[in-house]
Nucleic acid binder design. Structure first.
Length: 283
DNA sequence: GTCCAGGCTCTTT
DNA sequence: AAAGAGCATGGA
């Protein structure tokens, strides 16, 4: 008998929009509003029926311990949407278009490797690279309908890969970054267990000790794995938004942070995610 | 063929 | 401090 949890009356949630929001890559679409989803070493079956979310593969204890937080189900998104929509017409359109987007709370180590890969890369290639890493170095979770599903590998498991091995997975020049970052984390050079409890600026500096992590990648990691909603990741898309919509001329980190905090507020990272989703997906 | 993608590192002004 | 070159790969 398969475990199942049903969460009822969750508004401001769309599994479709979350999958297409460029923060999680380990999912497979079965049909509309129905996904197989891998995270935290588990394969879950997520189906959304209106405002209800059906999750197969977990029990209620696992839901309370892990998945409630993973899908950020305790944050008041209605209040955030209302706040952002009141800012200007662009955010009003963006929040209206992507009102089901949520910020996931994902595994820190996995996000570190994922967003090192993301640099100067596109989403389909990021997704396929992570699948190859998992299939090659991750543990088999289970087989379903003839397909094998693998967990994201642990630091130790990934450390078995040489730079050449990583290059063979199609990671490009990022192979060296991933190799060194894995080593540094295994050696305890950067203590992952303490990152989330640090002040945002301190946490960012700690992450930037790792090769392949600059401001933008660090901010994505802080937003998608550490609950830091006061960051503002600036990629090529968000840079266009800042220049075209908000006439922010200087897109240096300092200038952007000052603008983002004063204009969008303390949860500017969430506003950024609505804008990113909007400009990438809307016509 | 050129351009671009959820950029970073290293070098040169 | 700021700006530029180089970097792997594959799709448009």
């Amino acid at each position: 008998m398969m475990n199942q949890v049903v969460i009822k009356n969750i508004s401001e949630f769309s599994i479709e929009q979350i999958a297409d929001s460029g923060q999680a890559f380990r999912w497979e679409k079965i049909k509309e509003n129905h996904y197989l989803w891998i995270a935290h070493g588990k394969l879950i079956d997520v189906e959304q029926v209106n405002d209800d979310i059906h999750i197969k593969g977990i029990n209620s204890h696992e839901y309370d311990e892990t998945w409630k937080n993973y899908f950020d189900l305790e944050r008041d998104y209605q209040a955030l949407l209302k706040l952002f929509a009141s800012k200007d017409e662009h955010l009003k359109a963006a929040t209206s278009y992507g009102q089901g987007v949520r910020i996931l709370n994902q595994d820190l180590w996995e996000m570190i490797i994922t967003f090192i890969i993301s640099g100067n890369n596109n989403i389909p290639r990021i997704k396929s690279a992570i699948e190859k890493i998992s299939a090659t170095y991750g543990e088999l979770i289970e087989m379903r309908d003839g397909k094998s599903y693998y967990a994201f590998p642990s630091p130790h498991a990934l450390s078995q890969a040489s730079i050449e091995d990583l290059r063979a997975l199609g990671l490009g020049y990022r192979d060296k970054y991933i190799y060194k970052t894995t080593q540094l984390i295994l050696e305890g050079e950067v203590d992952l267990s303490s990152i989330s409890s640090l002040e945002t600026d301190k946490a960012r500096e700690a992450l930037k000790m790792l090769p392949g992590i600059g401001n933008k990648v660090a901010d994505c990691i802080l937003l998608f794995a550490c609950g830091k909603t006061d960051v503002f990741p600036v990629d090529t898309w968000v840079k266009k938004i800042l220049e075209q919509y908000y006439h922010v001329e200087k897109t240096t980190p300092k200038a952007v942070y000052e603008f983002a905090h004063s204009y969008f507020g303390q949860d500017c990272g969430i506003a950024q995610q609505y804008l990113f989703y909007y400009i990438r997906n809307a016509k």
